[in-house]
Computed example of a mutant assay.
Amino acid sequence: MTGRVAGKTALVTGAGSDGGLGAATARRLAEEGATVWLTDIDAAGVQARAAEIGGRARGLVHDVTSETAWDTVIAEIVAEGGGLDILVNNAGIAILRMIEALTPQDYARQMEVNMTSGFLGMRAGVAAMRAAGRGGSIINLSSVAGLVGIPGVSAYAASKAGLRLFGKAIALETAKQGIRVNSVHPGMILTGMQSVALKDNPDQFAIITAGIPMGMMGDPADVANMVLFLASDEARYVTGAEFVVDGGLTAQ
């Protein structure tokens, strides 16, 4: 099937990293016909990713922790595209430390970038979708760390778990308007950054993959395809749910 999101306007945050989940998601949505706006705090990176996708892809600088920045980005998208149909809250950071090494600043920064940005995005996205009156789909990129406990991942996990439940509540608030809100929970995904790190540390790669039932790390495209499904009308009766993409990791 082609053109699964044809005619729709999408915003994907945190899409500036080469080989990252945001870039892969934006590319997949564009391949299926959407006009895609990529945003990132990295100006050069997001412009490069938009240029690689080409066509109807656009890159914008965007600090997802700023309410003003969200208002500006959404206003530009609505002005040019007539509305917003798909919002992918992908931007995030990870500071992975055991509790004794985790500072209040580490904790606060992860909550701000991973959780507060999702709140600001959902609030702005819902307003734009309600104004257009044609429903919409919001997909929050959480993590398997938002579902199960992992040592050294406490603050990151808290932010991702919070994003999951925040989205469920918004799904109930917006269901009558046809605005769907779901979360995607990737496991170990071979992003560009991880590819470089594991190339230098093949023994670590073997240790990681040995713990995954499918015996391999996922590809960013695996996550992008899940987002595509949730963004499309094929998922018209799906809201307030979470979708795990982890090769069976959390089924153990």
Rank of each mutant, 00 (worst) to 15 (best):
A132I: 09
A132R: 14
R28C: 04
G136T: 05
G136M: 09
V73M: 13
I74P: 02
S143W: 01
E31V: 01
A155P: 13
M98V: 13
S143K: 08
V88T: 14
L165H: 10
T25K: 07
R130M: 13
G22P: 14
G83E: 01
L21R: 03
L141G: 13
N140R: 01
E31R: 12
D85F: 01
R134A: 04
V144F: 03
A69M: 03
A155L: 04
A108Y: 02
V64C: 14
D42S: 05
I99A: 13
I53G: 05
T72R: 12
I41F: 07
E67W: 00
V64F: 03
A57M: 08
R134S: 08
A157Q: 03
A94S: 11
A131C: 09
I74E: 01
L141H: 11
I41W: 09
A48I: 13
M122D: 12
F166A: 10
G121W: 03
K160P: 14
T65R: 12
I74F: 00
D40A: 05
M115F: 10
R134E: 13
T116M: 04
G149S: 15
G33E: 02
G55Y: 03
G133E: 04
G33R: 00
V36A: 05
L21N: 06
L29M: 04
G20L: 02
E80M: 10
L84V: 00
F119T: 12
M98E: 15
A101V: 11
L102A: 11
V64A: 06
A23N: 07
D42Q: 06
E76P: 06
A51V: 05
A43T: 15
M98P: 06
H62Q: 00
V126P: 10
V61I: 11
G146M: 10
I95M: 05
V88P: 07
A108I: 02
I150N: 13
M129Q: 00
D71E: 08
G125N: 11
R27F: 07
I74V: 12
V153G: 09
S159Y: 06
E31L: 04
N114Q: 01
A48H: 14
V73I: 10
R49T: 11
G33F: 01
W70G: 01
A44H: 08
L163E: 00
I74M: 00
S66A: 04
A30R: 10
V61P: 08
A91C: 11
N90P: 14
